[in-house]
Design a protein around this nucleic acid. Structure first.
Length: 830
RNA sequence: GGCCGAGUGGCGGAAUUGGCAGACGCGGCGGAUUCAAAAUCCGCUUCCCUCGGGAGUGUCGGUUCGAGUCCGACCUCGGCUACCA
């Protein structure tokens, strides 16, 4: 592999010869491709590192500058680890199912697969042009049937474990658009696009029982090395709260169950509220109130969740009914109001206006009495929601909130009127979509039909008897369609593919009809487990071999946007835990360290968007300055996690630095070999130490700054070979093409990645002498050059020699001397 | 409203975690080179000033010999979340 050499330019050796990324970058990319430089080792050593990027959705717009930010960070980690001899897994792939390709298909008739393939090819080209060291033989595509097969296989494991089930869920159905809409796509009961009416409709959906894992998903957050804010967000999303279930009897009718986190305030419950959809509403409503209640229920029904929550105004209607407070036998009026949600707890609350803001607002608006039961310090006209000491609470008076909670719950339980209960905000996961471009469910149902259901002969699909497709028949492929328009059938686009949907099978010697599930999985499905497939992407016997998973899991570092802090990361952890329980993966958690890169804003300091016209295209930057400059600039902008604005001018500064690196390598090649004196040597080793630790801490901006300083120094020193070689090794993870080019110019064989990582000599990191500032009463008055191991006496002696210090000492008495070796000498004089 | 994060030159940002505030880069100014320009290189660049110094890290207060860093109160901006009983 010696056919690669430093670039030959027409003016070699003259002043015209320049650092020319347009020439060297494609050359080294071709070399890497041919030499397969970045293959994952087949027999990984003991020291292993799995560095993972959140894989992109390959959109038609191509890469934006946010992609190279985190991808460069992980590439620096991967390359520097490989240089150190670590076995690295650094893969890339495509989260390629999803709505945009389908929408494009609806508009243009182009099959989503064609759009997806074209977009992937463009993304791959762009990523290769950036010189990332991915092992492309492990590329994964969530839409590839060989991948879908295992996504479906995992679904079947969930299904067999009772974690996947069907349920009627109230969704936003828009008949005009023929599709279900997300809450944020519904405004004022109309579709966001087109303004068509949207109704709340119960539809059959596939659900995943993620709530069963709520406690473990919460507990697992304790042990992961994640940003604190992300752990808090996931914790709040799971939303565990401890409280009690309390039974309120209703005369002559079914009792009402409520959930409360404040059973200690039961004596202050002056009314109850049922959600408008609560099943007991009709029962408790008196004739006199029926009309008003029905009108309110009807109005609430067609409001989306979002609309319902938009207005904070506390509306509601009295039902006329009363319930009995179990602790004191008091009769409390029962209201209905939409601030109580059917989906949480029991859909009914006991309202304690004295100690709950929402109940307080409601009571104030509707003239309901307020009884204080916890002594607090809230100002008049406000309610006290904190903890304190009980009052107006019978035998519990004088006890603390925590004690009353425990005592009342215990007493209620003894009376059979309540018990402790834990609630979660987390809901089971609605896992089906009525789209085309997603994974089909490996599920079918029996059909009763006298004729042929494909010909619309009358038939019944028995959705209550789902049958799993045999694992040997996976994957279930999508049918070919040429019309991707949503239809009027809530069963989804696939319902129109009748030849695909309905099929016959022999059962007990008789041909029977069956119908495939026509929903598809959401985009989250593929991204829930792609990091597992990377470990062993071509395995046909399993989603990945046990050995491969044991070798690489858990992921050592995972870098991606904070927008996935909750959903993607929660869903992936859920699947991982299920697979762990079934023995398919070796670790309880998938990801070790997690980092979110910050957003890159436009030059105007606001989010990049087409509408604002402030979008920077990486292709343009590469054309103007090269990939290495783009990579280094993005790392130099500031801390990886920070949001920071783009500044095109500043790229020039980074490029100048790369140019200088190239120049010192050329100086060596052309015979200039400056003396590697002690001072230069020390600078080199200090930079090695700084860059090495900065990479470990992901402080790429300061690592580059240190290399900028060193390259200037090496140039001044006449490019001593040993120093330039160290510089090349330090630079190469950041600017890999330049690193290879420098290495070649220095007369070495590629790849520089195999040249090892430089090691700092600890002896060279300490200076013999140090400059220490001398302060008088905290103000700097002089700087002394002292031996590094100087004692306080020696420092004082030197300080007295300084005229300014001597003068200050003469003006007052020395009260105190603070001497911190190598840091400071502070003299307190009065 | 709640939670999280951040406020340092004209700008992006450094600061060994309590020890010389402003590294490095952009921009600006001055100079070299050039017939000229581009490119390149060198120097200066927090503010005020009487050239000795004085002030200075969102505001006010505190701890300390010493605070950008720690503590308390507040202000501003950004992100997420939002009636979850």
């Amino acid at each position: 592999m010696t056919d690669i050499q430093a670039s030959e330019t027409p003016n070699e050796g003259t002043d015209e010869e320049r650092y020319d990324p347009a020439t060297i970058e494609p050359k080294w990319q071709a070399y890497w491709e041919k030499a397969q430089t970045f293959l994952t080792p087949e027999k990984p050593g003991e020291d292993r590192y799995y560095v993972l990027d959140m894989f992109p959705y390959p959109s038609g717009a191509g890469l934006h500058v946010g992609h190279p930010e985190s991808y460069t960070a992980t590439d620096i980690l991967a390359r520097s680890k490989r240089a150190k001899g670590t076995s690295v897994l650094h893969p890339m792939g495509w989260d390629a199912f999803g709505l945009p390709a389908e929408q494009h298909a609806i508009k243009t008739g182009t099959h989503p697969r064609d759009t997806t393939v074209a977009n992937i090819n463009n993304f791959r080209r762009q990523l290769k042009a950036l010189g990332f060291s991915y092992d492309w033989t492990r590329e994964v595509d969530t839409t590839d049937p060989a991948y879908v097969r295992w996504t479906q296989w995992i679904f079947l494991q969930l299904f067999h474990a009772g974690l996947a089930y069907q349920d009627e869920v109230s969704v936003n159905w828009c008949a005009a658009l023929g599709t279900v809409l997300a809450n944020e796509e519904v405004i004022d009961g109309k579709s966001e696009r087109g303004g068509h009416p949207v109704e709340r409709l119960p539809l059959r959906q596939w659900m995943l029982r993620i709530t069963k894992y709520a406690d473990r998903l919460l507990a697992g957050l304790e042990g992961v090395d994640w940003p604190n804010s992300t752990r808090i967000m996931q914790g709040e999303w799971i939303g565990r709260s401890e409280g009690a279930e309390v039974t309120f009897e209703v005369k002559g009718q079914k009792p009402i169950e409520v959930f409360t986190t404040r059973p200690d305030t039961l004596f202050g419950a002056t009314f109850m509220v049922l959600a408008p959809e609560h099943p007991l509403v009709a029962e408790v409503t008196t004739e006199a109130q029926r009309e008003a209640v029905e009108a309110y229920v009807a109005k609430a029904k067609n409001k989306s969740d979002r609309d319902r929550q938009q207005s904070k105004e506390k509306t509601g209607v009295f039902t006329g009914g009363h319930a009995i407070n179990p602790v004191n036998g008091a009769e409390v009026p029962i209201w209905i109001a939409d601030y109580v949600l059917m989906g949480y707890g029991t859909g009914a609350i006991m309202a304690v206006p004295a100690h709950d803001t929402r109940d307080f607002e409601f009571a104030t608006a509707h003239g309901i009495p307020v009884i204080e039961v916890v002594k607090g310090d809230a100002p008049e006209g406000e309610c006290f929601t904190g903890h304190g000491v009980a009052m107006n609470s019978g035998k519990y008076d004088g006890m603390t909130t925590a004690d009353v909670k425990a005592a009342i719950t215990k007493d209620l339980e003894a009376d059979g009127k309540g018990k402790a209960r834990v609630e979660y905000k987390l809901r089971d996961w609605v896992f089906s979509r009525q789209r085309y471009w997603g994974e089909p469910f490996p599920i079918y149902f029996p059909v009763t039909c006298d004729g042929d259901p494909r010909k619309d002969d009358e038939h019944t699909i028995h959705y209550d008897q789902p049958i799993a497709v045999d694992e040997s028949e996976l994957p279930v492929r999508l049918p070919e369609l040429d019309d991707f328009q949503p239809g009027d059938d809530p069963a989804g686009v696939l319902a129109r593919a009748k030849d695909w949907r309905f099929f016959q099978k022999d059962v007990e010697g008789e041909k029977r009809w069956f119908a495939r599930e026509t929903n598809t999985m959401p985009q989250w499905a593929g991204s829930c487990w792609y990091y597992l497939r990377y470990c062993d992407p071509h395995n046909e016997e399993a989603l990945a071999s046990k050995e491969a998973l044991e070798t690489w899991l858990p992921v050592d570092i995972y870098i991606g946007g904070a927008e996935h802090a909750v959903l993607h990361l929660l869903y992936a952890r859920f699947w991982h835990m299920v697979l762990y329980d079934q023995g398919h993966v070796p670790t309880p958690e998938p990801f070790g360290k997690l980092v979110h890169q910050g957003m890159i804003l436009g030059e105007d300091g606001v989010k990049m968007s087409k509408a604002r016209g402030n979008v920077i295209n990486p292709d343009d930057v590469i054309a103007a300055h090269g990939a290495d400059s783009l990579r280094c600039y993005e790392m130099f902008m500031g801390p990886l996690e920070a949001t920071k604005p783009w500044n095109t001018d500043a790229i020039g500064g980074v490029r100048k630095w790369l140019d200088r690196c190239w120049k010192v390598a050329r100086m060596v090649r052309d015979g200039s070999d400056g003396a590697y004196d002690e001072a230069t040597k020390k600078s080199v080793h200090k930079t090695i130490a700084k860059v090495t630790s900065d990479i470990d801490e992901l402080k790429f901006n300061t690592a580059i700054s240190a290399m900028m300083v060193l390259s200037k120094e090496l140039e001044k020193a006449g490019a001593p070979r040993e120093g330039v070689e160290a510089l090349a090794k330090l630079v190469h993870p950041f600017a890999p093409h330049l690193g290879e080019e420098m290495w070649a110019m220095l007369g070495h064989e590629p790849s520089i990645q195999n040249a090892g990582w430089p090691e700092a000599d600890p002896k060279l990191l300490v200076d013999d002498t140090v400059e220490i500032p001398v302060q008088v009463n905290g103000k700097k008055r002089a700087v002394l050059e002292l031996a590094a191991d100087a004692t306080e006496d020696q420092a004082m002696e030197a300080a007295k020699q300084d005229p300014k210090i001597a003068e200050a000492l003469g003006e007052g008495t020395l009260r105190k001397v603070i001497f911190v070796p190598k840091r400071i000498l502070n003299l307190i004089i009065k």
